[in-house]
Design a protein around this nucleic acid. Structure first.
Lengths: 197, 197
DNA sequence: ACCTGAACACCGTTCAAGT
DNA sequence: ACCTGAACACCGTTCAAGT
């Protein structure tokens, strides 16, 4: 890549990250190009679709998440590893409002520029789920696609501004449906009612 | 309302219902007006915002849901009533792709034309939740807003075409996190692993 | 190689003019 | 009262022309 092209590429990515953090994944591409002091056609030349741009923006987070999932497979208990991965996934999706819906669409669309990344993510989660299931700490009647769906629904909850104050609590509730360990059972929650703000 | 206006109103509602069922809540208003053989300005005169149109479209379902919730309060066991209401809510939201996100936005926006309907819905759910909590069949550390959020996340899952085949299963998983009864406990799910397609 | 302005077919909003 | 065409400021896509 030519030096000027490289510079445009990196600058566009930085500006797009800022704009999409502000406005969500449906932000105007024209606006991004404008803020980057570049023609709209130049943005489209570097990132031919909105999803290609999203994939580039998420690349770093995705790669980190994949690496971390591999580490968790050996460094943590199966249960902690699974919950930790879920937490990371949700945190990563929260960076860009609406991105989890794009991901759920992309994972079923082989043509999407986001497809491969999503498949990799789901595979990481699937491995951690299987390990927890083998240990008996995750319910056995869900598979990797179910887990990815539940992770997605958690990210969707995290996307709703009105639910921000209770995002952690809702995370615990849904996670308790995935786990089977006593510490997260509903009976336990029943015994120790938690004060709400 | 004048006769011709009434006719336009009803016709627009019917056409809008069809188009939004096909294309989701972000369907082009211009397209709806075009298909109704009416000027775009006429559509906007009857329904000044997209949310006003959505509210009108959902009015019937909303009212039925509210009525049914009141009936469930006396006719069913607290647990069955709560699950039944959740199921109806999800079914109603599935009519229009993306509507649950509009609802979650609207319930925090007093100005939204959808606001009042959403508040009523949440109140219905809250009453059913409280009854189940009093009986001990719903976990005590969630409130009506949490329930509405979880119902929303279930509707979001139902919105994803790729998850359609497992929508019922995911409903059961999330519902098991809300309920505390033995028949839905994770331990029980663990004992009777369920075959997946 | 890479960039860009302009043309294109869309969108929702607004309003003066028509019946 | 109610309807509408047209003007407006947007949007993403495409491509011939420039450097």
């Amino acid at each position: 890549m030519r030096a000027d092209a490289r510079k445009n590429h990196d600058h566009l990515l930085a500006v797009a990250g800022a704009v999409i953090t502000e406005q969500g994944v449906d932000a105007s591409l024209r606006d991004i190009a404008r803020r980057a002091d570049v023609g709209l056609a130049t943005l489209l030349r570097h990132f031919p679709t909105r999803e290609a741009l999203l994939d580039a923006l998420l690349r770093t987070s995705f790669d980190e998440l994949t690496t971390k999932a591999a580490e968790l497979e050996t460094s943590s208990s199966p249960e902690d590893a699974l919950v930790s991965w879920l937490r990371d996934f949700v945190a990563c999706a929260r960076d860009y409002r609406g991105v989890v819906t794009s991901m759920m669409t992309a994972i079923e669309d082989t043509q999407s520029a986001l497809h491969a990344s999503c498949v990799t993510m789901r595979a990481s989660g699937t491995r951690l789920l299987a390990r927890a299931q083998a240990e008996g700490t995750a319910r056995s009647d869900i598979d990797g696609t179910d887990l990815f769906a539940l992770a997605g629904s958690l990210a969707w909850l995290g996307d709703q501004p009105s639910l921000a104050p209770r995002a952690d609590h809702l995370f615990d509730v849904v996670t308790s449906a995935i786990l089977t360990s006593a510490g997260n059972s509903n009976a336990e929650a029943e015994r120790r009612p938690r004060a709400r703000g």
